[in-house]
Design a protein around this nucleic acid. Structure first.
Length: 582
RNA sequence: GCGCCCGUAGCUCAGUUGGAUAGAGCGCCGGUUUCCUAAACCGGAGGUCGUGAGUUCGAAUCUCGCCGGGUGUACCA
């Protein structure tokens, strides 16, 4: 919560016979700065006090006094509201002052108290390149991991790769078919995709291939050396490509985070045994299930009628494994909406198994990505790899970088920027793509369009980066170190005060992002912060940052540095670079 | 049928633990650069907040019904 809200609440509470918590919950920000900085609505008091809200507001104002140099300078009744006016200098010191005095602590909190959170995210099916849609889980999860980290949690990232299944049998069939002609096929994600497409094309004509694929998958399951060898190659090459792409997006999984389906294969027997011991398994239509009728859900399938396991079985085993190894206090599954029922079932079964920690498991779901009009035809289109309706993430990144590069070459005003054009284009282009993921609440379905993905203007990643570059540039021009005690009281521009208020909300934006698992809150906050600064910055008739007034300039530079720190920190959490010049 | 999600400006979305005249970006129209970055900024046009009721001093926000769209509904994940 925001500290000055608390102080106002404590001031008012005894006067209105309520607890500070109750009062705090009611405080609002007035719609216009001229009305005041923090408002308390008096409507609810009207009944008990038998007076009109405006009269109550006036009475309350009369009962309060404000010391010099305190948090608030005054309060006044504006209609039915008691509106507090913040002491601008005090506010500045508590926000910008705190930020520049200890930059490393800005944006950090120990509210997580060292608790452990597992964040499962990205989790692609391997053996083909990442598609654009993978950006959702990947960026959401990576940002959440960083939010939790900044909030004082110990974060364990997990990438639950789809690295097992019939697909590998199919790939082996295609690989073997090619082996006669080219014995030493090079394998990478793109050739794997070709094998996948080749198999499905061939299987259309030759119905024996399906049996062959099943055969190869069976060999793999039985530990056949050749099948295992191929599987390892396919998997290793996939991970190499993944890591390369992740690195471009500032996503870094530690080596032991890549625990895919294959990792849990040998752990499922024990899970099934525990289910049996607890008498949760029951036969139904030849399969083994956990009945969830009492909870208004279809049964959770554990063993298919052919005795094979299924994804619920693996998710149960992985949850058990993770709790045993990491003793997590919270486990986040950043997985698409569609799997809502699946996770509800799995969490319920964990609960029925007697695991109290089941309620600390949370499905962080998100809406689906489809292709908007103009991408594949003039209507919305869903993904379909086999029909060629895919866009690879790498291509999106490359096109964005190319577009950024063109813009840089048009605009570059210094040799330094020109010399750095390559690196900068990468930061800006990739930043634009990443940021587009945070432009809406995660539950919204997204229609991919090139226009949106490549947006370098307006509410976008590059807008924030540009603002950061402006701030950095100003500090370079100023060229002096910042004062230990800036004279904040010299800054009287009304926008400056509202910027300090905005800065005071930064920790709250992070707190809310954590509480709701919603990084878009942070993105929205950063856009508002940057917009407010740009408004002040471009008000050149009334405001210049660097002037002959040494003290005033120093104070302004203090604010500039605080803004820069906030943008840099926030961009970092979202996974964007914060260039010093562009 | 039932579950979950979404419905706010022409388009894409903020605003949702109820508060003062509903905001931004894109697009459209018109402006701002001898000046610390015009990837920016300012102004204008543009809204029955899907819809009907209810709760409340007060509803885009809460409750219920309805409409539209998405998605899921045991042997794929």
């Amino acid at each position: 919560m925001i500290w000055y809200k608390r102080i106002a609440a404590e001031l008012l509470a005894p006067l209105v016979d309520k607890t500070p918590d109750e009062v705090e919950a009611q405080l609002v920000r007035p719609p216009q700065a001229e009305m005041g900085d923090l408002g308390f609505p008096c409507f609810t008091l009207a009944k008990t006090l038998k007076k009109s809200p405006p009269a109550i507001a006036s009475d309350l104002v009369g009962k309060m006094s404000f010391p010099d140099n305190g948090v608030f300078t005054s309060a006044r009744a504006v209609g039915p509201y008691v509106n507090f006016v913040l002491n601008s200098a005090y506010l500045a010191e508590k926000t910008a002052g705190v930020a520049i005095a200890n930059p490393d602590a800005w944006g950090r909190s120990n509210e997580g108290d060292g608790r452990t959170v597992i964040v499962e995210y990205s989790s692609p099916n391997i053996a083909k390149p990442l598609g654009v849609h993978h950006i959702r889980s990947t960026m959401l999860g990576a940002a959440l991991a960083r939010v939790y980290e900044a909030r004082g949690w110990k974060v364990v990232p997990m990438n639950y790769l789809g690295d097992w299944g019939m697909t590998f049998g199919q790939l082996m069939v295609a690989y073997k078919a090619n082996e006669k002609e080219s014995p030493n096929q090079a394998v990478d994600v793109h050739s794997l995709l070709k094998l996948y497409l080749q198999y499905h094309a061939d299987a259309e004509e030759d119905e024996n291939l399906a049996d062959e694929a099943r055969h190869w998958f069976k060999l793999l399951e039985d530990g056949d050396p050749e099948a295992l060898r191929l599987w390892r190659i396919f998997r290793d090459e996939s991970i190499v490509a993944l890591k390369k792409l992740y690195a471009r997006m500032n996503v870094h999984f530690p080596e032991d985070a890549f625990k895919g389906e294959a990792f849990y294969l040998d752990k499922m027997d024990a899970t099934i045994e525990r289910l049996r011991e607890k008498c949760l398994l029951k036969e139904s239509e030849g399969a083994q299930v956990v009945d969830l009728e009492k909870f208004d859900m279809p049964p959770c399938l554990i063993l298919k009628k052919d005795g094979a396991t299924i994804y619920a079985t693996r998710d149960l085993a992985s949850a058990e494994y993770r709790h045993a190894h990491y003793r997590f206090d919270k486990a986040l599954y950043v997985v698409a909406n569609q799997q809502e029922l699946h996770f509800r079932q799995v969490f319920k079964v964990l609960e029925l198994m007697g695991y109290g920690w089941a309620r600390n498991c949370e499905h962080v779901k998100f809406g689906m990505l489809a292709f908007g009009p103009g991408v594949f035809g003039d209507k919305q289109a869903t993904m379909a790899t086999r029909k060629g309706r895919v866009i690879f993430l790498e291509e999106v990144l490359d096109r964005a970088v190319e577009k950024a590069r063109e813009l840089i070459e048009e605009n570059a005003r210094s040799e330094e920027v020109k010399a750095n054009a390559g690196k900068l284009a990468e930061q800006v282009g990739v930043g634009a793509v990443i940021f587009s993921e945070f432009c809406q609440r995660r539950m919204k379905d997204v229609a991919f369009t090139w226009e949106k993905a490549l947006n370098l203007h307006g509410d976008s990643g590059p807008y924030l980066q540009y603002t950061h570059a402006r701030l950095s540039s100003m500090l370079r021009i100023y060229g002096k170190s910042l004062p230990a005690r800036p004279r904040w009281e010299l800054m009287t521009h009304p926008v400056a005060k509202s910027l300090f208020m905005k800065l005071s909300e930064y920790h709250d934006a992070l707190r809310m992002s954590e509480a709701e698992n919603e990084p878009s809150f942070l993105a929205t906050y950063l856009l508002e912060l940057a917009a407010e600064f740009n408004r002040l910055y471009t008000d050149k008739e009334n405001h210049r940052f660097i002037s002959d007034d040494v003290d005033l300039t120093a104070a302004r530079m203090g604010m500039v540095e605080a803004l820069r720190l906030t943008l840099a920190h926030g961009l970092g959490i979202l996974g964007l670079a914060a260039p010093e010049a562009m």
